[in-house]
Simulated assay, not measured.
Amino acid sequence: MRRRAAICAPLAAPLILLPARLRAQDAFPARPITVLSGYAPGGVTDITSRAVAERMGRELGVPLVVENRAGAATAVANTAAAQARPDGYTLLMGTSTLAINPALQPGLTPKDPMRDLAPIGMVFRTAFVLHVHPSVPAGSTAELIAWCKANPGKLNFGSSGTGAVNHLAQALFARRAGIEVTHVPYKGGAPALLDLRAGRIQAMFQAVLEALPSLKDGGTRGLAISSAEGSALLPDLPPVAAALPGFDVVFWQGLFAPAGTPAPLIGRLEAALAAATADSDLRARLAASGVALTTGDAAALRQVLADETAMWGALIRETGIRAE
């Protein structure tokens, strides 16, 4: 009997271990999941992260706890996520900065988000409105471009900071239009808007929700929307692409896991995210804040990250933009 047991033991061991591994994956998630965010509490990105995480938690049966780790152009949160254990319990609400930082600030980590992070799916896209001071003699994007060509360097174009997406939108706009403008960076969108209303700067790409009050009271005049699909909050404004074909700039957010996270876990998270971003009540609630939830799987997010890393990297190198 002892001899028979010794012979059978090597064959029996794998039959015991394999179901145990399967049971561990089937049990996921068995505890709360941490979702890292590179932004401070209270902004649109944070509000959206919490709303989507709450909805995903209902789908998965465990809480998804958003943890704000602001700093270093979101690199603090990005790095922590990339270095976390790839077990599905630490995720990242990554944004456009993942595509910008490698070229703008190559000293930050992760240096290669395509390698160090595993995409799960898209969360949202939000556009910018191109608006100007009422003194600018242009009622459309084409007229603004014509005025800038006739007055090179005279248009002061504000942004919320060097390397911010709205700064890169301005740089791409100027390059595609073949115009020369003067970039004036600020520490945030609010002080830039104050100077735009006062006429100290003349133009700016700004998040639609932030610009709405000024557009409504006539403090500024909207010309166009940065995204190719326009904006539901400003349906009368055409896309910039109507004057500059192919122009499509948005701030986006997507959900990532550390590289090496098992595919079955990514699949569970991807399905929960898809259910959250397709939720009609959640979509309507966030649309009122200018956020368009986007249903896009892991492959779609991977493509967005790849495309924008190439686009912003080329623009930053060609124009010599440097972080301050």
Rank of each mutant, 00 (worst) to 15 (best):
A241I: 12
T182V: 08
S214L: 12
A73Q: 01
V249T: 13
S159N: 09
F251A: 01
A271W: 05
E270G: 15
T141V: 14
I47C: 05
L209A: 15
A164G: 13
G290L: 05
A298D: 01
A275M: 07
A6H: 14
R125H: 12
T277P: 01
F128H: 02
S49P: 01
F173L: 04
L91V: 15
E54R: 12
F124D: 05
V240S: 06
V240Q: 03
F124I: 06
S226T: 09
E180K: 15
P137W: 09
A6K: 13
L168I: 12
V52M: 03
A6V: 15
A80I: 03
G163Q: 13
L223V: 04
W147Y: 03
L223K: 07
I33M: 04
V291C: 01
F256G: 07
I321W: 12
A288T: 10
G218A: 05
A198Q: 14
A271L: 05
T74G: 00
L209G: 06
M93H: 09
L172V: 02
V44M: 08
R317Q: 04
A211D: 10
G38C: 06
L194W: 03
N166V: 07
M204G: 02
L196H: 02
P137E: 13
S135K: 13
G199H: 07
T45Q: 10
E308I: 04
R125Q: 07
R55M: 03
I321Q: 13
S96C: 00
F205C: 03
A203W: 10
A323I: 11
A72C: 04
R283P: 04
A224N: 00
L92I: 00
R322G: 04
R58N: 03
P106N: 08
G222R: 06
V132Y: 05
T261D: 04
L104F: 01
R200G: 00
E318A: 12
T220R: 00
P113Y: 06
Q202G: 00
M1Q: 15
R50W: 03
T261E: 06
A232T: 15
A24N: 10
L233V: 12
Q105R: 15
M1T: 09
A288W: 11
A20Q: 15
R85N: 00
G42V: 08
P239M: 08
F205G: 02
L273C: 09
N68A: 08
L98W: 06
R31F: 13
A310F: 08
Y39D: 10
L11Q: 08
V208R: 08
G43H: 15
A138V: 03
A6I: 13
R50Y: 05
V35K: 14
A70W: 10
A292M: 00
G139Q: 11
P235Y: 01
P86I: 01
A72M: 06
M204Y: 02
L193N: 12
A276E: 09
R21W: 14
P119E: 05
P235A: 11
W147D: 02
V44L: 07
S135F: 04
M56W: 11
D307A: 15
R50F: 04
Q25T: 06
A203T: 12
P262W: 04
A99D: 01
R3N: 04
W147E: 09
V165S: 13
G219P: 05
A310V: 14
A9C: 10
A203M: 11
R268A: 08
S280K: 07
W312D: 00
R302M: 00
L212N: 02
S140K: 12
L64K: 15
A24F: 06
E143T: 11
V249E: 11
P245M: 10
L196R: 06
A275T: 11
